[in-house]
């Protein structure tokens, strides 16, 4: 938390000015960086509304009110967080009802929606009404990987702050603790969010990368055996939803790397060689489209194994 000012000086400075001049809006969208940093930013913003020792728009983060917010004990700071694949309209309705009650600790209530990109269309539309006509003194803070993942109608009605994407020292340290080498951790953070990386270990991450690479090599050779590889080589390494998410992140990065290699763009992140060299560019683009659809299917709770097997059949068409 202390590193926030050091990690995100531009956004913190902008918010300081807004807070000092009492010009805070009622709805913000914070994107980029990692889920951890986005969350820290939202907490910092919430603290600024309750801190007893606010100075130049900066909460001290040590007073009792700041501490209760960090611990999640302030009844006026509500957070929507879900382990599910989506945030439904019922979740939004429930929290809106809560948020519209009178503040108990300070002058306003704050609703933080983590992973806002998980909102279903109905949920987002329901929230839109509140953003357009906020009731009482409510401030909504949406956190997302990328603002583009949210409905255009929401994007146009909130103030968007893009955080800086430089890797965070704390995150690298936490991955090193999980057995990642420093260089590997740096690369991994370019591929995926810390939340998903922390669900694995350095060794497991490497095994997963090898298994995915081998699977794609079979695809490149047009070997239908890649269908069987999903069960025998990939599934034993994937134990939970976070690791499944990580697999999609890695696959997306590999496709991005292949395009970089083909067009001599920036240095690739996960694969130093073009592992799909037998496929022409049109086929690569089609495969990327299939991968995008696969991820949508996964978000609708279709079985992860079935999705990868279906991809195998499409890729070896």
């Amino acid at each position: 938390m202390e590193n926030l000012v050091k990690e995100q000086p531009r956004v913190v400075h902008e918010f300081q000015k807004i807070i000092s001049s009492n010009m805070l809006s009622h709805a913000y969208l914070i994107d980029n960086a990692s889920s951890k940093i986005r969350h820290q930013m939202a907490i910092w913003l919430a603290q600024s509304q309750f801190c007893d020792n606010l100075e130049n728009g900066m909460p001290d983060q040590t007073c009792q009110k700041c501490q209760t917010i960090i611990l999640g004990d302030n009844p006026d700071v509500l957070e929507i967080k879900t382990e599910k694949q989506s945030i439904g309209v019922d979740d939004i309705k429930f929290f809106k009802k809560e948020a519209n009650m009178a503040a108990t600790q300070g002058k306003r209530r704050i609703l933080i929606i983590d992973e806002a990109e998980k909102m279903t269309v109905q949920a987002a539309n329901n929230l839109l009404k509140t953003i357009e006509e906020p009731e009482g003194n409510l401030m909504i803070i949406l956190l997302a990987d990328s603002s583009k993942q949210l409905l255009p109608t929401i994007q146009s009605r909130v103030q968007i702050f893009h955080l800086s994407n430089q890797s965070n020292e704390d995150e690298i340290a936490s991955l090193v603790e999980l057995g990642f080498k420093e260089e590997q951790a740096l690369r991994a953070l370019k591929v995926s969010d810390i939340k998903y990386l922390e669900s694995t270990t350095g060794e497991k991450y490497q095994s997963l990368l090898s298994a995915i690479t081998n699977w794609l090599k079979e695809v490149n050779q047009q070997k239908i055996n890649c269908f069987v590889d999903v069960q025998t080589d990939l599934m034993p390494l994937v134990e939970n939803k976070d690791q499944q998410h990580l697999v999609f992140n890695m696959l997306n990065q590999i496709f991005s790397d292949i395009l970089s290699i083909r067009y001599n763009l920036e240095k690739s992140t996960l694969t130093p060689v073009d592992i799909l060299e037998k496929r022409n560019i049109q086929k690569i683009i089609n495969m990327s489209d299939d991968l995008f659809t696969a991820e949508q299917m996964w978000k609708s709770n279709v079985s992860f194994q079935a999705i990868l097997e279906d991809l195998s059949l499409k890729f070896v068409d």
């Binding site: 949508q296 299917m297 609708s300 279709v302 079985s303 079935a306 999705i307 097997e309 279906d310 059949l313 499409k314």
Partner: peptide, 9 residues
């Protein structure tokens, strides 16, 4: 297989 996975979706 492709059809049934799509049906599931």
């Amino acid at each position: 297989y492709g059809d049934i996975v799509n049906l599931d979706y």
